[in-house]
Design a protein around this nucleic acid. Structure first.
Lengths: 227, 227
DNA sequence: CGGCGCTTTGAGATGCCTCAAGCTTAGTGG
DNA sequence: CCACTAAGCTTGAGGCATCTCAAAGCGCCG
């Protein structure tokens, strides 16, 4: 881990475009920038472990971070995959002094970090900050509930189809996607073993899905919705 | 559904002991009580459906409510079971005008309802209200992430054992629990078919768990933790 | 005590996981 | 620029967990 205390220009601009910061008024935004620090991690670096004393909440500027839990046999399950613009550990702003899960860099990663104490204090003064935290928590709660429902209702090919449809932003006709990360990471995100993701892709071939490395071709988005 | 506009004394007292209201200062609490209305439902009544225009967020005063989603074949999956003191649909305070899931009374139920618009306005004025909403959202986010991790890491007997351990509040030795609702509801809460719950209980017999209707005896809590 | 609804049990099917081996991709050094 | 290597991905085989459907058992309420 390579720590840099202040933000460089590019990181700052990325941070400002983030859904968290972009919604703030000028004074709140300045205050948040004031307390932001940047951290870089290499692939597979562990940012923190479940139960560690929590110092920061995070905003991803570049790369992907895996949030996961372990069972007592050491098996891992991903809870969330965070990419550019995502925040994590905001739960702790309202309660708790320990991280609730493990976090690991899935590749080279750049993060903005915010001291939890300072953000708590800021949320007291700046209504904007409190509101943005609320929006952020609501978004995650919604996404996490969606995840439970999908896990419980959908088979592996359906989950993959669902992911492809959200990723391609097209209503009908053909589409092409480039996966932003490794397939094993997508597998974890969807609650599958990598082998199961692979088999799901080959099931989807008959629905017009062609996979070539990280590039995925969809012949007919409408047809894929029927899965 | 039998609607009563104002709270009676017992409902009011129940509401005040709720984790949502009990944390408010006097003025915020009075303001919340001012906008609260009460609604009663019978078992299996549907409170609202996914996609309905959202008017209220809710606080359970008595009974249990099932929040669930449907897939396109009509199969149901529970997302959350809400009991006395729980709130639901608070997600919508920060964003969205439509309910995100279906809600159904699992038995006779008494609810406090709060007009979303009015609570949003109140959260702007009263910092306490905003803070309590944040805590509430954080709690649910945490619980929902726990749920994903448990679904992905634990087998049926492990999930049941985990539920029993959280329900009995004992560190070691024997314990006795009375389930607050039907087993089929517990099955849904744990993401299982009722038959799978039943089989999980019979697996746990060899770990010293005896089931008799809604009453569950645990010979040794410490032993159950090893499952 | 009788009946209805919830729960349990059995049998069979399905879907996903694990392990192991072969293959492809991407990254590295000659 | 190409060959090489390591990592990631795919495929196959086998096993386990949970689901579905069906029928019998039990518990609770009138």
């Amino acid at each position: 881990m390579n720590k840099i205390l202040r933000l460089n220009t590019r990181d700052k601009n990325t941070l400002l475009r983030t859904s968290f910061l972009s919604q703030l008024g000028p004074s709140a935004m300045a205050a948040m920038l004031e307390i932001a620090t940047v951290a870089n991690y290499e692939s597979r670096d562990v940012l923190f472990r479940e139960g560690d004393h929590a110092e920061f909440f995070y905003c991803v500027l570049g790369g992907y971070v895996r949030l996961y839990r372990l069972n007592k046999d050491g098996r891992e399950a991903d809870i969330r995959i965070c990419g550019p613009g995502d925040t994590f550990a905001e739960c702790l702003l309202a309660m708790g002094d320990n991280y609730l899960y493990n976090a690991q860099a899935a590749e080279t990663v750049t993060l903005a970090r915010f001291d939890l104490q300072k953000v708590r204090a800021l949320a007291e003064q700046e209504k904007d900050v409190a509101k943005t935290i609320m929006r952020c928590l609501s978004d995650h709660l919604r996404a996490t509930m969606d995840c439970i429902a999908n896990d419980r209702l959908q088979t592996a090919p359906q989950r993959v189809a669902h992911y492809l449809l959200t990723a391609c932003n097209t209503d009908g006709g053909p589409a092409s996607i480039r996966l932003p990360f490794q397939k094993s990471l997508l597998a974890g995100k969807l609650g599958l073993a990598p082998e199961a993701l692979s088999r799901a892709f080959s099931t989807l071939r008959r629905a017009g899905v062609t996979v070539r490395g990280r590039t995925i071709q969809i012949n007919d988005v409408t047809a894929l919705k029927q899965i």
